[in-house]
Design a binder for these strands. Sequence first.
DNA 1: CCTTTAATTGAACATGTGTTCAATAACTAT
DNA 2: ATAGTTATTGAACACATGTTCAATTAAAGG
Lengths: 189, 189
Amino acid sequence: MKPDLRVVKTKRALHEALVELLKNHSLEQVTISALCRVANVNRGTFYLHYARVEDVFEEYFQEITADLAKSYEEPYRHVKLLNPRELEPSTIRIFHHVQTYVDFYRIVFSKNVPLAYYYMLFDEVRKLLLRDTAAHKQDEIDHELFCSYQANAIVGMIIHWAEHDFAATPDEMNEQLAHILRLDSGRRV
Amino acid sequence: MKPDLRVVKTKRALHEALVELLKNHSLEQVTISALCRVANVNRGTFYLHYARVEDVFEEYFQEITADLAKSYEEPYRHVKLLNPRELEPSTIRIFHHVQTYVDFYRIVFSKNVPLAYYYMLFDEVRKLLLRDTAAHKQDEIDHELFCSYQANAIVGMIIHWAEHDFAATPDEMNEQLAHILRLDSGRRV
DNA sequence: CCTTTAATTGAACATGTGTTCAATAACTAT
DNA sequence: ATAGTTATTGAACACATGTTCAATTAAAGG
């Protein structure tokens, strides 16, 4: 059940062709025909794996969101998490992650791309919150709902960040998050 | 400078044709050609006003987000707003608004629509928060950033709601928001 | 190495896309 | 009503889309 090398080659060619075309065109300007021309892949082959150009970007973007989760696994970062209302901001790697892949995130937050990309980021953040706050459930509050609330709040900060062309530094974003979470007084490093 | 009646008629025909087609097709399945066929509008005319089918939906959806703002203007609802951390949930009309137009919001929150629709809702909520919390700025916190945080947190709840097929009632959503905002203890009606 | 399996190809077809143009029709303003 | 303005139309064009098919090619597994 190994992945067929031909499929791997085809997908890699399409990935690289997409990155190439995105240097001079917006995502929605990239046609399937042009993508296949640049990638030297038959158009029929494209349809064996995808339906739209956006699906190729989505597959690529999946590797990036996977990196977000991975950065949380690094043991020296993965400090014990406290009550979600007192998240230790040094453990929040998301702003640094976004800056690392800012060229991708400019696309992810642009108006005419599918909402699916947004969900991929949101789901990743929520997954991390669900895992790290499992011990701090509160009565009367639907914990999954609360994580959707909290995760999307953070993504809201990233929207704001993107609207200002990612001018602030990741550390400044972390600092603001700390203040919002009321860590400004009684900070514990 | 009145709107040309011909334009009004054309747009209305396209709006109605879109609603008609959406009964049996997803938004992305609706082609420009089919839309124009049903609307009895020349395809060239379509391009005089729009570029994509999604633009027609966006124009329609604008009327709906305008209704969200309008519901906040109703004087008997527009109670004095407190500190954003203590939002009086009875003034939060958003969950009821979403339920009123749930057929539209199912599309707005579906994966393959443009992110632009999401922004329209988010911007509307943020605008309301910015207006109603202007008096409660805090030092050290970028107030606009905080409103992006808070507005998107609420939209995160709606995402969660949509994921569960809008099963909860708007009042239950409001109740959960109240709990999250720490109104559970010391509630003031 | 050789057979089996399956991905890829190239070609074709109907339809959709995006644009242009002169001719026509419908609206506005006087 | 009439003249002037402008949206709409229909036709045509090159190109993109989505699908099908038999022929070919490359990989997997023994």
